[in-house]
Amino acid sequence: MARIIVVTSGKGGVGKTTTSAAIAMGLAKKGHKTAVIDFDVGLRNLDLIMGCERRVVYDFVNVINGEASLNQALIRDKNCNQLYILPASQTRDKDALSQEGVGKILDELKRDFKYIVCDSPAGIEKGAHLAMYFADDAFIVTNPEVSSVRDSDRMLGILSSKSRRAEQNEEPIKEYLLLTRYSPERVKLGEMLSVDDVQEILSLHLLGVIPESKSVLNASNSGTPVILDEKSDAGQAYSDVIARYLGEDRPHRFIDDKKGLFGKLFGRK
């Protein structure tokens, strides 16, 4: 049975698109046929992070409006043939997405794909609502920072009351916490909320901690999901996330400050 995963946060700039690209690639690399959909109508960016911006011909809204078939709009990823991208439209029409239209496309995708990753836009407007409405699982992307944690909690409230599963009294959406841009050194200095702090406030199942990493910007610069950078800490952290999501038991890495005594005494930033 196909599963729909929404990657959401409420707050912008916390790493939703980076995460969507990484986990979609991670799932596909494990052999699961995966589609990743950009719900940020008007501000399309997933194509750029996935490195397929020059291959976009048709988009999500074209398919909803019947101007193109799903197969015409889906872009096969250049690194992994199990992964397909459905780009967002650049239209400025706010009502371009409809619940029926999105529902129909997701139903069609469910027949062919194992995982459907929905990259939510920031905010709690229509795009964000539709991205989470049909979800089975939710990845809540949170930065260890007050406004992000607050918005994540607000998003949890919306997931538990406004989603299809909530409205139809089905089993609730499974919610997972993904803490991104984490800096163990700053946590140790008492300058940043720790994993435990955030978990205590949000009481969510922790799927992974992605450390603040240069590799994330490098990955988006080149248009390759950071999970493909297997040497990088962020890439490894996303691989762990996928393994845990698929049921493997992996200890959390990148949570503790690894700098040795030498580093501490003659500290580099």
């Binding site: 007050v146 300058e191 909320l193 205590e200 003659f266």
Partner: peptide, 25 residues
Amino acid sequence: MSLLDYFRTSKASSASLAKERLQIL
């Protein structure tokens, strides 16, 4: 963190303040 940091008196950390404010909110 450098050698100097060890000699600075530690104030109540900003992270614990953040946690407290968030819990209430």
